[in-house]
Simulated scan of single mutants.
Amino acid sequence: MQEKTAMSFKWLLTASFINSFALGFIWPLTSIYLHDQLHQTLVVIGWVMLANALGQMIGSVISGRLFDRFAPFVLIQIGVGVMIVAQVAFIIWHSWPVYPLILVVTGLFSGWNTAAINSYGTQINNRDGRYVFNMLYFIANFGMVFATAIVGPIYAFGIIWLFVISLVMYSFLFWIIRRHFNFSIARTKADVKISLDQQLSVWNKRLIWTVIIGLGILWISYSQWLGNLSVYMSDVLSLPLWQYSMLWTINGLLIAAIQLTMNGLNLVASRRAMWIQIFGGIGFFGLAFLVLPFVNNFTGFAIAMIITTFGEATAFPMIPALINELTPNGLKGRFQGWAAAAPSAGRAFGPLLGGLMIEHSGYHQMFFAAAGIVLLALIGVAIMVMWGYRFTTHYEQ
């Protein structure tokens, strides 16, 4: 197969969309399937979801490190190839206890593939890095929202059909990768030395790890939206489940509108705009949790979700973009892997921490605690940026 000379941004976005779309047929209904069809307790389901999220985190870290050391083209083919095999396994074995074991494997390699795609994004040389990661974030969310919108009706015909569709999508993704991802990454001897010796300036390291840890903290709070809030709305406030689902429709549509507007107006090209997005986005994100204790109807939750989405859509894409700016070519994959692992860590431990807080103090105190840790993340990132950014070395593509 002929090797290309540069990564195509169009095909990278296509791969990101298909990867998220295919993944959207696997995990959204996992809890319902485990509870209603496999008759597992909520405690067991919690452990399964924890193992899946930890798998995503580990896969992201491993994939990012390997991206800098080995052939990325082989790396991503392995990841997508395993996901194809996993879908076949799901079709054949989807009973207890094999189903959760396969689910952990899919968690590992979904994290693997996401980190690989983000690492490929660092190799787009004809676009500004902030624009690249804004678009990657938008297209991945769009794929997930599109999948979750249709997964419910398809599930009514049997869970096997979800795995069949996912198998077709991953097979298509493998074909795209074979045709459009085989290009040479120019690495100098200095890049290799950096990759092996892990040499990076002190302030680059400090800032990179600050934003990665901050992203993980934000996802600890965000994970309350993904799980505990649905229980709060349905069991405590007796609101119908469709209203909770509608919040995510609002989230997906608003992310698309925000990202397309910012990219259309070229707002992401400015470094000043990047700081506004990061600080303002984190601030909005925390503000929503201060709203939640005082609302008890769909309108109030919709307002809180709109505030959350403004924060998410502006701050989250800028963190991998900033990491890209602060890492040389030989270390980009490693730290993009950690950036992809941070949300998985938040999803792994957030529901557990939120559940403990709810049992001890109730939902309202959990919301205030979520706002508090977001504030701590904002203060930590702001201090490190204002103190040390001027001492960092920049690596523009």
Rank of each mutant, 00 (worst) to 15 (best):
T261Q: 02
D191Y: 05
R187D: 04
L254V: 04
L254N: 05
D197G: 11
A190C: 07
W175T: 11
P240I: 05
R178W: 07
W248K: 06
I208H: 12
A257Q: 06
I194R: 15
Q277R: 02
M274A: 01
D197T: 13
I177Y: 06
L196I: 06
L218V: 07
I220Y: 12
T261L: 11
R272V: 00
M246W: 07
T188K: 10
S238W: 14
Q259F: 10
L218S: 11
R179G: 03
R272A: 05
I176T: 06
D197R: 09
L229S: 13
F183Q: 05
V192C: 03
I276S: 04
S234F: 06
K193C: 07
I185S: 07
M262Y: 01
G227K: 08
S221W: 11
N228Q: 15
L247D: 06
A186T: 13
Q198N: 14
I185A: 12
P240R: 11
F183I: 01
R178C: 07
T210Q: 12
N182Q: 09
I208L: 10
A257E: 06
N263M: 03
L260N: 00
I176W: 09
A186K: 12
N266F: 01
G252K: 08
I255N: 10
W203Y: 13
I255Q: 06
V231S: 14
I176Y: 04
L265A: 05
S201I: 05
R206E: 08
I255S: 09
S223K: 02
D191A: 13
D235T: 10
Q224P: 10
L253V: 09
Q277A: 09
A256T: 01
T261C: 03
V211A: 10
R206C: 08
L237N: 14
L200S: 13
W225N: 07
I176L: 15
A269M: 00
L267H: 00
L215S: 12
Q198I: 08
G264K: 00
I213S: 12
S238Y: 15
H180C: 02
W275E: 02
Q198D: 13
A273Q: 02
I185G: 03
I276F: 04
K205H: 11
W225K: 08
G214H: 12
N251C: 10
I213Y: 11
W248T: 10
L267G: 00
V236D: 14
L229K: 05
I213Q: 09
L196K: 11
L265M: 12
N266W: 00
H180E: 09
S230H: 06
L267V: 00
I213F: 14
A257V: 14
L260D: 01
G214L: 08
I212C: 11
W242A: 10
G264W: 02
W242C: 05
I177H: 06
I217K: 12
W225R: 07
I258K: 02
S223G: 06
P240C: 09
W175V: 12
L260A: 01
T210L: 06
A269Q: 01
G214W: 10
K189W: 04
Y244W: 12
G264P: 03
S245H: 14
M262E: 00
I258L: 03
T210S: 15
N263S: 13
R187G: 08
A257I: 15
I208D: 14
G252N: 09
Q198V: 08
W275S: 01
I213W: 08
N251Y: 15
I208V: 14
I217C: 13
M233T: 10
